[in-house]
Every structure is written in structure tokens, then in C-alpha cells.
Amino acid sequence: MAENTVQDVQAKEPLFGKKERKLLTDPLDDNNPITVQVLGICSALAVTSLVLPSLVISIAVVFVCAFSSLITSLVRNAIPSQVRMIVQLVIIASLVTIVELTLKAFNYPVYKQLSVYIGLIITNCIVMGRLEAFAMANKPWRSFLDGVGNGLGYGAILLIVAVVREVFGKGSLFAGSPLEMKFIGATNEYMINTTTSDWFGWYSNNNLMVLPAAAMFVIGILIWIQRSRNPKLVDIS
């Protein structure tokens, strides 16, 4: 009898069933942490002026979100409810420190570029939000997937915003990486007297795009587009 029950449970919860897939794909669209839940806006505004830092931050958030969910879920029954937020915070902070130390040892230039923002992942509402809302009440594997999904959902929006801002704001793409592209014709208007610059052309860089306010507009437009094609998201009131 006992063996049967175990098998039943396993049959009901496949490793990668429909529900599990939904955990990964849901945060990309229907339940996107940035455009639908409007969480993690602070870092989405701050780091998205260039693609490379956004990419590194996204990878770091996927890692932190996934493993903090996994760890929290593993110990969820042992965590005293009085101090659960602090425990979650310690788990997140430790993982962020691991990311920071690893980056410092293996890719120092990127660490230099990002140092402050890496630390800010600790305060990213998405991570803690998923721990509190999902990992505390679900099994480890599903929590892990939920963490990966939400990290990816966050990263996807970050990259879209960063591409728009970097192309229109700086006339480049992937600046600072080996893939760096500069668009011929982009004008470096605020250095107009610099004869050494060969970036003159028909397009004048939009300085507004460089400022965090531009990220707000881009995210706003993304939310608009998303809601117009996805009727599920429109508030009925």
C-alpha cells in the first residue's frame, strides 16, 4: 500500500510536466514581474542604459532567484515564522555576496562596472517576493523553476529596455564587450568640438534615453503593448 502511494504521488508530479512548464513561462508574459506585478522597477530603471551590464545583472538575478527559492523551499518547514523575512534576507544576501566575490575573482572589469548594482539585487523586490509568495509554500524543484522563470521574466524586460536605450541613447550596442557595435551616423553631439571623434552623422543621440526616465517610458510602452494583446491582463473594474 505504502509503495503504491509513493508511486501515485510521483505520477502526479512529473519532473517537467505542464504545471512545471507554466512556472517557467508564466513570468515571461502573463505574470511578468516587471510589466504585470510592477516589481523590481528600481533596478530596471538604473542599470538599463547599456546592454552588457543589464545582461550580467539578469544572469545574476536568475541565479540568485533560483537558488534562494531552492534553499528557502528546502528549509521552509524549519524556518521559524517569527523571523522568516530575516532568514530569507540572509539567504539572498549570501547568494549575492557569492556572485559578487566570484565576479571579482574571474571578471574584474565587469565587477568594477557593476559593483553597486550587484549589491542592490539584495533589495530587489522580485527575489524576496517569490520567496515569500511561492518558495515558503512549495516543494524545492517547483520553487527552483519558479525562481528561474521569474529571473528570466525580469531579465527579458531588462534586455529589451537596454537595447532600446543603448541604441537610441548612445548609438551603440553591447558597448564594453567584444561584440561592441557602433552605428555609423550616430552623432556624439555633446562632444561636437572634438576633432578626434569620427562618430558624426545624421542621427543625433537622444540624451533623454540615457537618463533613467527613459526606462520608465519604455517600460510603460511595453506594458501598453502587452495589455493590448493579452486581454487577461486588463483590469475589470
Binding site: 542604459s49 555633446y190 572634438t194 571623434s197 537618463l211
Partner: peptide, 21 residues
């Protein structure tokens, strides 16, 4: 720099034209 605005103050580093002057 440590934290100048990308595209504005950060140009002291990012824009080779500034230092070249």
C-alpha cells in the same frame, strides 16, 4: 569613475574623445 551617469558624466571614461583632447 565609480558612479557617474552613463552617457553623461560617464563619458569621461566611455568616450575616448574626451581623454584624447
Amino acid at each position: 569613475h565609480r558612479g557617474e551617469t552613463p552617457g553623461l558624466g560617464a563619458e569621461i571614461k566611455d568616450n575616448p574623445g574626451f581623454a584624447a583632447q
